[in-house]
Design a protein around this nucleic acid. Structure first.
Ligand SMILES: [Mn+2]
Ligand SMILES: [Mn+2]
Ligand SMILES: [Zn+2]
Ligand SMILES: [Zn+2]
Lengths: 137, 137
DNA sequence: TTCTATATTTGTAATCATTACAAAATTAAA
DNA sequence: TTTAATTTTGTAATGATTACAAATATAGAA
């Protein structure tokens, strides 16, 4: 309760009710939620919440470095408050996203001369164990 | 001319004029073009070309395994006829896309039990050498 | 070659996630 | 309080992609 709003303040943004709730949700979620998932999850407890606020907030969080944005090429962005170096797996059957304990390889040696690296993303696609099992149809 | 249409036939699709032109363009392009870029490039030489045909065609190419689709999170997809294992760099300033001679690391050992890997994508973001130089504003 | 069925292309309309915008509500500070 | 700045909200616009059906082209039969 306290901790979350302090984190927001440390990033120089006002810890409004909406921002704190959205941040808390992102911190505890393991599903790398979309804006729609965040909105649907919080709506029952904050009936006046606007989708636009969720969009504004995750954009703000991205800007100040509180979340990373993941794009699995499905036309929807997903958000991850875990900023430690890790990679992501998306199941092509059920759409679930899993964390992979794989640090992006060190690429500094292999970059063309004069290039500056800011961010790296490693995406893996395939079938999760559950969908692999039921690989009938 | 011949070669390209044969490649399409080998994939089981009819080498129509539009498909061959689009495929040739993708083969020689180094810029990882979007649908819009393909459309604009070919329109002068085929004035009746429809954007929809470009969309249909790149989707078909993806399905039969002639191209890979890249998503740099800008809301537009880019297409790459180079299927060899390599990675991609996008300049956050100028938006240019570069090939990186980096093979995605072998991750088979690090996958959770029962998972099946189909595809991997390694994306790097930062500044290209040209934009790094002019890093004024 | 013509005919006919099938495949492809085309243009337009719909979809849908995201963004723009301005009014309403909230907050901080005077 | 009063006031100014910030934030939230709802609705309208945007823009890439997809759906759809009519028009065109192609392959194969006759
Ligand atoms: Mn994650
Ligand atoms: Mn490439
Ligand atoms: Zn699955
Ligand atoms: Zn650049």
């Amino acid at each position: 309760m306290q901790i979350h709003s302090e984190i927001l303040e440390n990033k120089g943004i006002r810890p409004s009710v909406q921002r704190v709730r959205i941040f808390k949700f992102l911190m505890k979620s393991k599903e790398h939620p979309t804006v729609e998932m965040i909105f649907n999850a919080l709506l029952p407890e904050m009936p006046s919440l606007s989708r636009t606020t969720v969009y504004n907030t995750v954009e703000l969080f991205k800007e100040v470095g509180l979340v990373q944005v993941l794009d699995f090429g499905r036309g929807v962005l997903r958000y991850d408050a875990d900023l430690s170096p890790h990679s992501h797996f998306e199941c092509e059957r059920c759409g679930a996203v899993y964390d992979l304990d794989i640090k992006p390889q060190d690429i500094s040696k292999k970059m063309p001369r004069g290039f500056k690296v800011h961010q790296t993303y490693f995406y893996v696609f395939g079938l999760c164990s559950h969908c692999k099992k039921n690989e009938k149809n």
